[in-house]
Design a protein around this nucleic acid. Structure first.
Length: 482
RNA sequence: CGCGGGGUGGAGCAGCGGCAGCUCGCGUGGCUCAUAACCACGAGGUCGCAGGUUCGAGUCCUGCCCCCGCAACCA
């Protein structure tokens, strides 16, 4: 009955951008949909704040690590506000509670932790040890800009290898469901090759910015290992009631680049802790701009803010939820964004609201009368939300919008009005309102503001027109050109 | 044989064994309640190529060709 959805926590060594905006948007839709069904819901997101890269970045800016992450974390929170995200929690891995609980978790995992000497390449940027076989020879040379570090150190290791079969079985039997299927296949083929034990700590003298290993102050936890724990520390693992009430997560949302951590390492940790796996792992893709990867050097980085300022938050939500394929990479172009806004939001939905309210005001003095119950079958839409196919769910909702416009053209209420058949007219217009209210209801998780506005217009059987229009049509030149 | 994603009307995509479909764009017509919005109809595809399986293949199998990621910020 209870519902828990968590996004990954982004590494806050730089400004938030559109990709993470999309991820919290996905979480928001799921959380709003669950709450709407009356489920007690916790929706968490947060920030991953430890590690070498952050320490280095902070230093380069002349800041203490904590000052730096305080600043950047706030920007991630602001993004949530900008996008009307309804998260209940925002966990930071520098929160005292997380740090303490992470140490408890470490202790609980100790039967699968051992100390060993590690010699090999370390990728500072990825915070990752690089197996000899996968290492790029060019980066082994010290003068390479992203040169690996040659490390010989004593580290703690986690017996990931021990859990390979258990994880594979859990995924095959769908105790842990992974969507889309391509990502599931990807991880299964990786598991077939077997997993190696992983290093989960670093010497504190090399890296002070992390959570100390309990009982060994000379070591701090490897940032990834500790960050994964946020999904349960946020619920107060081990002792808090929320943990008992809300774990396992119904959905965890991640980007395709961190699949291995969430579909292999994280399940192994949970097995070791003897607590259940999340039910569904939703793996989304990336957003390109004009068909190219977003990058500062190409100068094509789009900031969520500039979109929201011109078109409004619901337009942002709409585009990224419907026109970025939920199971694949997507493409943002101003041209497509404008087309979606004008054709779909302004012309189809906005105008359907407009023509309905105008006729009720003109012919019936703004009185709707009795509104019939909605009658469409919305099961498919609900099912698509459950499996995170938000793009399809919106396609289906738009099928209803289109259907309403067709209905209006078939019934021709303006002719009924001329014929003075007021009873029939009232029925037709009330039906239109019924359709719009149903659409608004379906849209609530996706476009909360627009849904509330539509509901507000027809409240109590009277038309209360909006100031202005729902989605004012934009001149194409209004937007920054790409 | 590095890994992964993809090639379907002008653009973007769906379909994954049974008469090629959707949205946009384009053309024509209708309508006038509406944000010059809405509705209908139409043009436009030998579904990357070549074999194979099948009564029947975008859809399954085999081989090949082409495109995009796998460097950085970063999901």
């Amino acid at each position: 009955m209870n519902y828990f959805v968590a996004t990954s926590i982004p590494y806050v060594n730089g400004e938030p951008h559109i990709g993470f905006g999309m991820e919290i948007l996905y979480g928001d839709v799921l959380a709003r949909a669950a709450r709407k069904q009356g489920k007690p819901t916790i929706f968490s997101t947060g920030a991953d704040e430890h590690g070498t890269k952050i320490a280095e970045k902070a230093e380069s800016l002349g800041l203490k690590p904590q000052e730096f992450v305080d600043k950047i974390s706030q920007e991630f929170r602001n993004l949530g506000t900008l996008l009307n995200i309804s998260n209940d929690r925002f966990i930071r891995t520098t929160d005292k509670a997380h740090e303490q609980r992470a140490q408890l978790i470490w202790k609980a995992l100790e039967k699968d932790i051992y100390k060993d000497k590690y010699t090999g390449w370390y990728d500072v940027r990825q915070e990752e040890f690089v197996p000899e076989a996968q290492a790029d020879p060019a980066r082994m040379k010290p003068d390479h800009p992203q040169a690996y570090q040659r490390l010989e150190e004593e580290n703690y290791f986690f017996r990931l290898s021990k859990y390979t079969d258990q994880i594979r079985e859990a995924i095959e039997k769908e105790q842990l469901k992974i969507v889309p299927a391509t990502r599931r296949n990807e991880i299964l083929s990786l598991l077939k090759e077997g997993l190696d034990d992983i290093s989960i700590s670093r010497p504190a003298d090399k890296l002070a910015w992390g959570i100390p290993v309990p009982g060994d102050p000379k070591q701090v936890m490897y940032v990834w290992f500790e960050a994964l724990m946020n999904y349960i520390t946020v619920l107060g693992y081990p002792e808090h009631q929320d943990f008992r009430d809300y774990w396992p997560a119904n959905v965890q949302i991640i980007g395709k680049d961190i699949l291995r951590f969430h579909a292999a390492i994280w399940p192994a940790m949970l097995f070791s802790l003897q607590i259940p796996l999340p039910e569904l792992l939703f793996v989304h893709g990336f957003i390109n701009v004009d068909g190219q990867k977003m990058s500062k050097s190409l100068g094509n980085v789009i900031s969520p803010k500039e979109i929201v300022e011109v078109y409004g938050v619901d337009a942002f939500r709409y585009f990224f939820l419907r026109h970025v394929p939920s199971y694949e990479d997507g493409d943002f172009t101003w041209k497509n964004f404008e087309a979606a806004y004008n054709n779909e939001l302004a012309n189809e939905l906005g105008n359907a609201v407009q023509r309905t309210t105008a006729m009720i005001e003109k012919y019936q003095g703004g009185i709707v009368g009795e509104i019939p119950d909605a009658e469409h079958d919305t099961r498919q839409i609900q099912e698509n939300i459950e499996i995170c196919r938000f793009d399809r769910a919106l396609d289906q909702i738009w099928g209803q919008v289109r259907g309403l416009n067709q209905y209006i053209d078939e019934e021709k209420p303006w002719e009924i009005a001329k014929a003075n058949d007021m009873e029939h007219l009232r029925e037709v217009l009330a039906y239109q309102v019924s359709c719009l209210l149903e659409i608004a209801d379906l849209l609530e998780p996706f476009l909360p503001d627009a849904a509330a506005k539509i509901k507000g217009i027809f409240k109590e059987g009277l038309v209360t027109p909006l100031e202005g229009t729902l989605f004012p049509k934009k001149d194409v030149t209004a937007a920054p050109s790409a």
